[in-house]
């Protein structure tokens, strides 16, 4: 059973205004130097609590910097909460930052292998999927050259094909639909629809209010790391649009 449960989750980034702290500053701090480089705490997620059960598809909307992507990374386990509890049950597939984490010197086929293993595949399960991934990416002979020669669009095609080759229970998506050329976008949207139907639980972060209403059963409007409104996609999108219109 796939399930997500967040209880009073807080995530705070401690950043420094200029650069990172040096070893010298760390050691001398408090002796006679006053820090010229104070810590700035950014409260990215503030007391976040909600529960998602099997079958629910959550759409997350809000302004840039509202904490949407941070929430997704926290759900994926990349960021740990500073306080509160995070429970995610079920195998996770995350579709964010999909174009990073490629080995530039290795060719497309090898990168399919690395990414496949990264997603928890084994040589046996991957063998069956390799051709399918290659076909979906439509990269053909380009798969034989190192990926550092790829264009941004080609890289995204490959990344998308690999990332969506799994059959996850929990699907975490951060606006990946705007990828590649027009033909590929249509194909990618179709694949996303299939995945969303198959996965038992989904969180979709998007600025595309239409797809939120199309795919989701529930929507969350976030502002400054907090939940502003939680409800049916129709109501939440309407409220969000009204607030944007009022501000303009």
């Amino acid at each position: 059973m796939a399930r997500i449960e967040l209880n009073h989750v807080n995530v705070t980034f401690s950043l420094r205004k200029t650069t990172r702290v040096t070893l010298k500053e760390y050691l001398l701090k408090g002796l006679f130097l006053t820090s010229v480089n104070p810590v700035v705490a950014i409260h990215a997620l503030n007391d976040l609590s909600f529960t998602l059960v099997e079958g629910e598809r959550l759409g997350v909307i809000g302004h840039n910097g509202a904490g949407k992507s941070t929430m997704l990374k926290m759900l994926a386990g990349v960021y740990a909460p500073n306080s509160g509890t995070r429970i995610v049950e079920g195998s996770i597939c995350s579709l964010f930052d999909i174009a990073v984490g490629f080995e530039g010197e290795a060719n497309g086929w090898d990168n399919i292998t690395f990414r496949g293993y990264l997603q928890g595949e084994t040589p046996r399960t991957l063998k069956a999927k390799r051709q399918e991934i290659a076909d979906f990416s439509e990269l053909g002979d380009f798969l034989n050259i190192p990926v550092r020669y790829y264009s941004a669009g080609m890289l995204v095609r490959l990344a998308f094909a690999i990332a969506t080759a799994t059959e996850p229970e929990v699907l975490l998506v951060d606006e990946v639909l705007s990828v590649g050329d027009m033909a590929f976008v249509a194909k990618a949207k179709e694949r996303m629809r299939q995945m969303m139907r198959k996965s038992s639980l989904m969180v979709l972060v998007s600025h595309d209010l239409e797809s939120v209403q199309e795919f989701c059963t529930r929507a969350l409007w976030m502002e400054h790391g907090r939940v502003k409104l939680d409800g049916s996609p129709k109501d939440v999108v309407a409220a969000y649009q009204a607030s944007v219109a009022a501000a303009a």
């Binding site: 990374k73 994926a76 386990g77 990349v78 995350s94 930052d97 990073v100 984490g101 490629f102 990264l118 997603q119």
Partner: peptide
Amino acid sequence: EAYIRLSPL
């Protein structure tokens, strides 16, 4: 870094 930011390995 890219892998660390991508997946909790």
